[in-house]
Amino acid sequence: MATSSRVENDSAPNILPTAKRRSRAWRRFTKNKLSLIGAVFVVIVVLTAIFAREVAPYNPLQANFLETYQGPTWQHLLGTDSLGRDMLSRIIYSLRNACIVGFGAEIVELTIGLMLGATAGYLGGFADTILMRVVDVVYGFPTFLFAIILVVMMGHTILAILVAVSATSWVGMARIVRSQVMQVRQSPYIESARAMGASTWQTVIRYVLPNSMGPVLVAVTFGIPANMMIEAALSVVGLGIQPPTPDLGELILVGQSAVLSYSYLLIWPALLFALTLLSFSFVGDGLRNVFDTKSDR
């Protein structure tokens, strides 16, 4: 064919095999070693939470009055608390609530944020004005106070806490999605989609949202630890998961009351919590590097 003979004149781009291309994102992510360490840590935390029953050496609720306030020993690696319960097991089980609320609330936020943000951003005009005023109003609510009110009203169940945590924090997500969608909507390929006859729904689902995901994903990795923080804080004020179910906030609260005599009761849960939050931040930074494609096209 006449056309194919001319193709050779095109400057040949460096074509990478698929595997190599995938690894480019990975290379960007791991450019910052802390991101990799953070990701590994997050995966360990999540797996531990899921397999808490298998991993924990003891029943976290099992009191043993012969072994109260034991420092770290071979039987109890992180010692025992005032009722002789194994600290390691309690910490492992406490990750469950943190993860359920952290990830669960983020899923709720993401769902609401994507729906409202995409609608407002893509349609613009009147719909945008109305939705964004709603967002402004909710943004004005004091997050923590509102969460407390909800938990008091709905009872101290994990579901109530999940609702309370996500009740106001979806607004940030909605704003991020909206601004991304507004930007992507201007892209020439959206016009191409119209030219080929794609409906609004198809355009949004197939082209607008997938191409808006970068900053949203970064926001998710910062949202999860924020949710965990609120969940723990609710515990600290006595409105979280009710004892004896272990919870990081409650462990830290109990630990700090005994910090002078049995400091390990505070140190381990606090350290784990801090490291978990930090790991998510590092993962977020790594993802930011992946999606920040301005540095090389």
Binding site: P188, Y189, A193, Y207, N211
Partner: peptide, 14 residues
């Protein structure tokens, strides 16, 4: 059919 001015921008990047 429609072909726009900006070849890179008009293709779906995803």
């Amino acid at each position: 059919g429609f072909v726009s001015q900006d070849p890179y921008g008009s293709l779906f990047p995803n």
